[in-house]
């Protein structure tokens, strides 16, 4: 239910990277990454089910012991903080030039974080319901592809697998890192109404994300061909821009922005929530509410410190992120899983 929208926000930026590497076969990258994402999700769900009712931050200590567990917890907190700052920054990077070119970026960031903080204050349930409301917006995304039909040239996809498998794998890495964000399921799972459905929900989430990302990539390649989009910061946005209906309905990119803002806010919300919750659990607080404001300020500050400008951010997403992300998303969980297996740790069922 929840994981669906949490991750579907990569839609906008995702296409340019795999296309840069794999050209017209980028859609294959997404499919491959989807398979990888499914594996990561299953890993996390399995791990969670060994410790029913506990979040990632709680069972880290069970697996690794108190002090190392806390250290890894902080590592994860830092990682999530990193993700959320990137999202916030992307948010500003897209909206600033489109909507408010003369407004300082800080204002946009503050205005994005404020409603999200309000949402966190109201709790997870409210966040989930908000998600449900905005999930219907994603339908528009599908409609957009139909509207773009006149611009689509299917020949852009030919020839298939021209460059061989290596670029394909390279291109898979970045989307895989996006899929890797599914490890958040490890934090959300204990709060699901039916934690037993973990696999089903995670699987569904992966399918949806694959579909949406695949759609975005399909659209961009079909419209621009394999060469142009790699140079765009937000290729999907540019693709939709070309839609024109009956000489009157045009500039539909605003719809993409609407979807993207809603999705972006929810994504920020999800990670923000994980950070405050994780911090509260690591530090042993009863409620995370007092942490909302300080963490918000930290996110705001870091969103400027981490990336001084858009180009640096793009470089980061393209070059550093896949490896950095996958370390936390694949390597660490695998290690955790191994340790848990070896030490035979398993929370006793009550």
């Amino acid at each position: 239910m929840l994981a669906q929208v949490v991750l579907a926000t990569a839609v906008l930026t995702a296409p340019s990277l795999p296309i840069a590497y794999a050209g017209q076969d980028a859609w294959l990258c997404i499919l491959l990454a989807g398979v990888g994402g499914l594996l990561i999700a299953c890993l996390m769900v399995n791990l969670s089910r060994r410790f029913p009712g506990e979040t990632l931050f709680e069972y880290l200590e069970d697996i690794l012991g108190k002090i190392p567990g806390k250290i890894v917890s902080f590592l994860y907190l830092w990682f999530f903080l990193h993700i959320v700052t990137v999202v916030v920054r992307e948010f500003g990077a897209l909206l600033n030039p489109i909507f408010l070119p003369e407004t300082p970026l800080v204002v946009i960031h503050i205005l994005a974080l404020a409603p999200v903080a309000y949402m966190l204050w109201q709790g997870l349930e409210v966040m989930a319901r908000t998600n449900e409301i905005f999930a219907s917006l994603l339908l528009f995304g599908v409609i957009l592809v139909i509207l773009a039909a006149p611009q689509i040239k299917l020949t852009n996809f030919l020839p298939v697998l021209d460059a061989g498998p290596v670029p394909l794998l390279k291109g898979t890495l970045a989307p895989l890192a996006w899929f890797g964000e599914l490890i958040t399921v490890a934090v959300f799972l204990p709060y699901f109404n039916r934690p037993r459905d973990g696999y089903r929900i995670a699987g569904l989430a992966v399918c949806m994300i694959t579909f949406m990302l695949g759609l975005a990539v399909f659209l961009t390649i079909a419209v621009f061909g394999p060469y142009v989009p790699a140079s765009y910061l937000f290729p999907t946005f540019n693709a939709v821009r070309l839609i024109q209906l009956a000489n009157f309905v045009e500039r539909l990119e605003i719809l993409v922005v609407v979807i993207w803002v809603a999705g972006g806010l929810l994504k920020i919300g999800a990670f923000y929530w994980i950070i405050v919750l994780g911090a509260a659990q690591t530090l042993g607080l009863r409620t995370y509410r007092p942490l909302i404001l300080p963490v918000g300020v930290i996110i705001l500050a870091l969103s400027f410190i981490f990336h001084r400008n858009n180009l640096e951010m793009v470089r980061y997403i393209g070059l550093t992120w896949p490896f950095y992300g996958l370390t936390h998303e694949l390597l660490l969980p695998l290690l955790l899983f191994g340790t848990a297996l070896l030490r035979g740790k398993r929370r006793k069922k009550k």
Partner: peptide, 16 residues
Amino acid sequence: MGLYGVLISVFTLVVH
């Protein structure tokens, strides 16, 4: 805040 302000407000409204 223009369209961005409207979007943010609507989001807040939905959360509320």
